[in-house]
Design a binder for these strands. Structure first.
Length: 457
RNA sequence: GGCGACGUAGCCAAGUGGUCUAAGGCGGAGGUCUGCAAAACCUCUAUUCGUCGGUUCGAAUCCGACCGUCGCCUCCA
């Protein structure tokens, strides 16, 4: 299996260093509802995880919550709640959203507020080694000490300064130096430290947590492309300076960003669709199919038509899984060539668009073979199995509420009687009226089936 | 200004030197089935890959220029 590594800029054969694959994925800063851009990112890493496990690897997945930060403090003050309460609320929401999207939970979700002692240890060590220095209650990382600084972003320190948007910063020796520890302002959450009360800077928490939960070398570190610089660049600098071991990360994986209209979807720009809004309109599977229909490293635009079209596409895959009736009279359909193609696609840096194309090919083959009377049970099992690798179940997620089901079935029964007596006008009226209420009827050789149409407009 | 990515059918999106007269999905057209529908199935729907040059026996795929879009350089998945 090959994975594209941002650091080297090439696809390389992947194998974990030890018995388990060590995966760290950057989590969220919980101060606002989860949006579909997060969903896309975590879905990409969900598929990575499912595929690695499918390939027989054991895996340990750590994902942080940055639950102390300027934006959290600001949001908490403006809403008149304490920062831990605000963070807790959004963390809970985030986990619920991930569950709703069928994204597997990480094995560990460390939080900055619970890791401060370890973060302080790391900062202290960096100061002792000369990689960091103290200035007015802040502690900064000395970027100039790291000759490779900029290697992940493929930039040099000089070229970054030429960009000119660097703020000098009071106590900084070098404009690109970044804070490991920030002195507390009045009323802010703070912890004691050798440099006075304060809180961790933005990047150090990931270094400390990754080191503590996974060790000095990670097999895979993931996140959105917007984290490459400065966040991940700084993680490399901190961790390698601290451990003295190289490389900190063997494979850097970054997903392309979701756009809304012409711009990246982001909290700061305010152009976003929350996961809850999306799930109110579309099924989780349609959203998943939409995201996976594009390669994880490519940017993708979120559009209603796009997700809606996947809702219809999904119906085709589900239809291919409807049970076969009658006993097969022809040779069974052999799904192995499809399986091979699926694996080849996934082995090539998780080429989910191609893998999905294989699933549609297999679905078509199943439908065709079934009409010809061939045994499709094995092929259907393969479709189900490969779908599950992508996190799909293809089950008719019918919000079949107990209240109306018996009545709908009664109406269908009566319509059946009408049809038997060739009272088609009345029968069609029933079907039309149910249709306008969002209930779709289909007359099949096995009888009439119904399903609820998802409102999509 | 610096660094990087991308531009493939009506829409979305794979493919990155010959198997490509380019996968798959949505949409569209015709047909089979059906009381009529729906679903399913079959057939068709880019001789062409932003534009212009170049390299090569051969390019959507490599190189150059140009046009356009986006990302990072500041918080961000």
């Amino acid at each position: 299996m090959k994975l594209y590594d941002t650091l080297t800029g090439e696809k390389r054969e992947f194998a974990p260093l030890g018995v388990e694959v060590k995966v760290y994925v950057c989590g969220i800063t919980p101060y606002a509802p989860t949006h579909v851009g997060h969903a896309m990112s975590y879905m990409a890493f969900d598929v990575l995880r499912r595929y690695l496990e499918f390939r027989g690897y054991r895996l340990r997945h750590v994902q942080n919550f940055t639950d102390v930060d300027d934006k959290i403090i600001r949001a908490a003050t403006s809403q008149g709640v304490a920062t831990p309460q605000l963070a807790d609320r959004y963390i809970e929401e985030f986990l619920e959203d991930m569950d709703a999207l069928n994204i597997l939970r990480a094995h560990v979700y460390p939080r900055v507020t619970q890791e401060v002692p370890r973060i302080l240890e790391m900062i202290q060590a960096l100061v002792e080694k000369g990689y960091a220095y103290h200035a007015n209650g802040d502690v900064y990382f000395r970027v100039g000490r790291v000759s490779r600084y900029g290697e992940l972003a493929h930039r040099t320190l000089d070229s970054m300064i030429a960009g000119a948007r660097v703020e000098p910063g009071e106590g900084k020796e070098h404009p690109m130096d970044f804070a490991l520890w920030k002195a507390a302002k009045a009323g802010e959450p703070a912890w004691g430290s050798p440099w006075g009360d304060g809180r961790p800077g933005w990047h150090i928490e990931c270094s400390a947590m990754a080191y503590h939960y996974l060790g000095p070398t990670l097999d895979i570190h993931g996140g959105g492309q917007d984290l490459i610089f400065p966040h991940h660049e700084n993680e490399i600098a901190q961790t390698e300076a601290f451990t003295g071991a190289r490389p900190f990360v063997r494979f850097w994986l970054h997903n392309g960003l979701l756009r809304l209209g012409e711009e990246k979807m982001s909290k700061s720009l305010g152009n976003l669709v929350t996961v809850r809004e999306a799930l109110a309109r579309y099924s989780a599977e349609a959203l998943r199919l939409y995201f996976l229909s594009s390669h994880y490293r490519s940017p993708l635009s979120y559009t209603d038509e796009g997700v809606a079209s996947q809702e219809r596409a999904l119906e085709r895959l589900r239809a291919a899984l409807t049970p076969q009736d009658g006993s097969p009279s022809a040779a069974a359909l052999d799904p192995d060539p499809y399986r091979q193609r699926f694996l080849a696609a996934m082995d090539d840096d998780l080429n989910t668009p191609q893998a999905i194309a294989v699933l549609f090919d297999l679905a078509r083959a199943i439908n065709r073979s079934r009409e010809e009377g061939a045994d499709v049970h094995r092929a259907q099992n393969t479709l189900r199995e490969l779908g599950a690798v992508l996190g799909h179940s293809f089950t008719v997620a019918q919000p079949r509420d107990v209240d109306s089901s018996p009545f709908i079935e009664l109406l269908i029964e009566i319509r059946g009687e009408l049809r038997r007596h060739k009272q088609y006008e009345l029968a069609d009226r029933l079907r039309d009226r149910l249709g306008s209420l969002g209930i779709v009827l289909e007359d099949t050789p096995r009888g009439t089936i119904w399903k609820r149409e998802r409102a999509a407009s």
